[in-house]
Design a protein around this nucleic acid. Sequence first.
DNA 1: AGCAAATGAATATAAAAATATCGATAAAAA
DNA 2: TTTTTATCGATATTTTTATATTCATTTGCT
Lengths: 206, 206
Amino acid sequence: MSCENAVRRLSEYRRILCKLKALGFTKVFSDHLAGAIDVSPALVRKDFADFGLTGNRKSGYSVGELIDKLNRILLKEHTEEVIMVGCGGIGRALMNYNGFAGEGIRITAGFDSNPDLQNCDAAIPVLDISRLEVYINSHRIRTAIMTVPETYAGTMADRLAAAGIRAILNFSPITLKNLPGCFIRNVNFLYELENVIYFSAQDTPE
Amino acid sequence: MSCENAVRRLSEYRRILCKLKALGFTKVFSDHLAGAIDVSPALVRKDFADFGLTGNRKSGYSVGELIDKLNRILLKEHTEEVIMVGCGGIGRALMNYNGFAGEGIRITAGFDSNPDLQNCDAAIPVLDISRLEVYINSHRIRTAIMTVPETYAGTMADRLAAAGIRAILNFSPITLKNLPGCFIRNVNFLYELENVIYFSAQDTPE
DNA sequence: AGCAAATGAATATAAAAATATCGATAAAAA
DNA sequence: TTTTTATCGATATTTTTATATTCATTTGCT
């Protein structure tokens, strides 16, 4: 699991810091951030220390400085271009998801083998899957989202890795393992829902 | 984090066991299951022990028996009815997602405040949000999926909990804490993607 | 029947993750 | 200037999670 959790917390810190900045705050304390994301202040300081984020004794951390450094760590200094592989219902919904654009992430193209889904002229073009490798190469894409049927997920991941993709967010219903040189993060809707259903039947799930 | 991870592994075990059953296997060993989901055999045995799943020394576990017991634990002996709160792009995509139906989960209704999205006659009706409480009560719904804008997420979660919902799968872009009597699991697309992007820039992310 | 091999079950160990503690220090107050 | 106070930074502790190890038992073979 390496440091996935810590990196995810960085995203959470960043979100809160941006809100604080919008409210005009310039300083923040580990205590406050800790309360906001429900961890201990010690963990906030440790996370920051681990990623080279420093503060000042007595006067806490500078909001602006933290955001700048987090932007560097999370690759937000430029717009990150991402492709969508598989453009069924979930894929298209994510292509239209409005939560990425303002956060320095752009889905620049989709790929699907079904001609009915292809559309070169759309705001985000959906191309035939055969054009995958050329596109990745010419656009220097490093990150892909995958929403393909289970049957194709494994081979498609191999294909993406071979084409130079360095990390995949995989929504297909099969859990894939990291490949050499390619990080894979699996999100399985069925498992998440089964999990929630399990806890819906537990006593005082709080 | 309680035992979320263990429950998620139960989902994974179950998926693999169903495939083994389809292939005609009747017995399975912790070693095999461990390899399939990339953990140690000891963890498989411990997970099983923790949830009361037993096997036989020398002859392993019975595939059929494991599936039956997992079905009981994961509430798969009946069809679980779930509602969708917020029927924008992601919500509708999940309502049409074909990965739930065959797994004993049915999204029976959607709710949205936007009249344009409402449709009483659809396969899965989308009702006005004002009908939420009555529906939950009359259909004895315990589980909800939430895909509402950030602004409404907090109050909507409170409202769901007050209406009797026991667990929420929250896709809205704000991390919610468990409420008294209501478990909340957050899935944040932006954080997941930021995570993946982070690792796309690390060396040998494997 | 008796024995060897293999495996679950239980326990112990290790590794990882989160929290608590404490000293140093900078800012504010006296 | 001195004192006080609040907070970071570093370390130690605890807790949680996962893995090894050991033991006992079942099965199949001779």
